[in-house]
């Protein structure tokens, strides 16, 4: 480690360092590519910009942390490639006594601080984008009420009718006002990447703009008792026309 950093003549020409550097490059690339895919693949196709951003940010975080993870892996693997000693008695003590390397530690701390800062700033930017949807005055307001173990929806912008089904018009921002009648539930539309707890006595909010017509999953993400596992629903994202039809068929107004 310290050999990497101290300015001994030509430390970089040492064989150990070269091998480690090679491994580092290989591991970083592998972790970035595989890690990014492993995360993105199961998350499926995004049904909103929020979710698309989330998938993107997770890939990005993977890429950013890949060099760090790659370096740790490279050093670990290099150590394991060294001649090992088995047996009941210890091998002779190491022929060097490096117990510190201020430069290596300084580089390490600064780099990790920078990566951390990057992650933070990037997260904030996305967070800000998500929050902006909340402020959209044209959004459709829907009141969501959780109770053991069902969801109810009040379409307050569409004549205030109630429904047990969630229909959303595509490409139109929706503003959910979420509460609960009994215990804490959590309102989670999986493919849209939004979630907020439903608390008794409080109103919480979240917002999203669905971007794809289709049927998605609404699940409860907070243990809420006996039938928590079954407290789920389908979310129907439909065209504006279909949405209007659906609303009028339920006695609502456009």
């Amino acid at each position: 480690m310290s050999d990497l950093q101290t300015k001994k003549p030509q430390w970089w020409k040492s064989k150990d360092v070269k091998i480690t550097a090679g491994l580092w490059v290989v591991f970083s690339a592998l972790i970035a590519i595989i890690g990014g895919e492993v995360n993105a693949r199961p998350m499926g196709e995004a049904a909103s910009e929020t979710m698309a951003n989330t998938i993107h940010i997770m890939k990005l975080f993977t890429w950013v942390s890949a060099p760090v993870a790659g370096l740790v892996a490279a050093i670990a693997v290099k150590a394991l490639m060294q001649k090992m000693h088995f047996g009941d008695n210890p091998p002779p003590e190491a022929d060097h006594q490096i117990s510190d390397s201020p430069k290596a530690t300084a580089v390490w701390v600064i780099v990790s601080a920078l990566l951390c800062l990057f992650a933070l700033i990037f997260g904030m930017v996305i967070l800000q984008k998500d929050n902006n949807t909340l402020l959209d005055v044209h959004a459709t307001d829907i009141k969501v009420t959780g109770q053991q173990w069902a969801w109810n929806f009040d379409y307050s912008d569409n004549g205030n009718f109630q429904s047990e089904d969630l229909y959303l018009p595509v490409n139109k921002p929706v503003h959910f006002h979420v509460t609960s009648l009994d215990v804490v539930h959590s309102f989670w539309i999986v493919q849209m990447g939004i979630k907020v707890d439903a608390n008794p006595g409080y109103l919480t909010e979240t917002a999203v703009t669905p971007t794809k017509i289709g049927i998605y999953d609404l699940r409860c993400a907070e243990l809420c008792g006996l039938l928590h596992a079954y407290m789920q629903k389908k979310v129907h994202v439909v065209s504006q026309q279909d949405y209007n039809n659906w609303v009028t068929s339920h006695g609502g107004t456009i």
Binding site: S2, D3, I75, A79, G87, P91
Partner: peptide, 16 residues
């Protein structure tokens, strides 16, 4: 930092 300490210690050590 904890990672650094561990990888720094195994670096070029002769592993038992």
């Amino acid at each position: 930092m904890l990672f650094l300490v561990l990888v720094g210690t195994v670096w070029r050590g002769r592993l038992w």
